[in-house]
């Protein structure tokens, strides 16, 4: 594979001044700061859990546990990484642990809620096709091996940089690239019939 250069979306971003202030307030035990954290990251954390687990109920459990662990472990947050990366790391670990444990209570995924393709109004045939494509995409992502699925979700759905993914998952950068590429090729092969 080629050499990766530093490009937008690939390298880890430094915490902003606002985020540094939020971290300081969180460490000081400011309840409002924690509320801000939850409000800011709730959808992203929930999204990762939903795409990994395929069940809204289970995803909510994991997302809630993610924030509770963050609340308890604020003292361990070094502040070098972004808060989002830290939360993604917690959520990813929880998802992978739950998937590996085999003790899942919600085996069936919520197909309709998992993936939604944006659709312009007034295009019935297109909407049907998009619905079918959305289901196929969901199936394709769900069929990915978990270690590849988490990488593609963090990169292509959540938009994390490679470095952030590596940090969140505790992987080497090369491993992240490799898994991501293989995941994308897997998806492409599963979506062949929708592609020109």
């Amino acid at each position: 594979m080629g050499t990766f250069r530093s490009a937008p979306g690939l390298s880890g971003r430094e915490p902003s001044a606002d985020e540094a202030a939020l971290v300081a307030r969180l460490r000081a035990g400011d309840a409002r700061a924690f509320e801000t954290l939850v409000i800011t990251y709730q959808h992203r954390v929930f999204g990762v859990a939903l795409r990994m687990l395929g069940s809204r109920a289970e995803a909510e459990e994991v997302a809630q546990e993610t924030f509770l662990r963050a609340h308890r472990g604020l003292g361990e947050f070094r502040g070098e990484a972004r808060l989002g990366t830290w939360l993604y790391a917690i959520a990813s670990r929880l998802c992978l642990t739950r998937l590996a444990s085999g003790a899942r209570r919600h085996e069936r995924s919520d197909d309709a809620a998992l993936l939604r393709m944006p659709s312009p109004a007034g295009d019935a045939a297109g909407a049907l096709e998009r619905q079918e494509l959305s289901a196929a995409l969901h199936d394709a992502i769900a069929a990915l091996p978990e270690e590849r699925r988490i990488v593609v979700v963090l990169r292509d759905v959540e938009g994390l940089a490679y470095e952030e993914i590596a940090e969140a998952l505790g992987l080497e950068l090369g491993t992240v690239r490799s898994r991501l590429h293989r995941a994308r090729l897997d998806l492409k092969s599963k979506l062949e019939r929708f592609l020109p």
Binding site: F46, Q64, F67, L115, R116, L133
Partner: peptide, 25 residues
């Protein structure tokens, strides 16, 4: 393919999620 994955609509946490988290914390 990558465009399709990236075009997936962002998931939204269920209503009341923040309150439940704050209550649990």
């Amino acid at each position: 393919t990558v465009g399709l994955v990236r075009g997936v609509e962002a998931a939204r946490a269920p209503a009341g999620f923040v309150d439940r988290v704050l209550a649990a914390a």
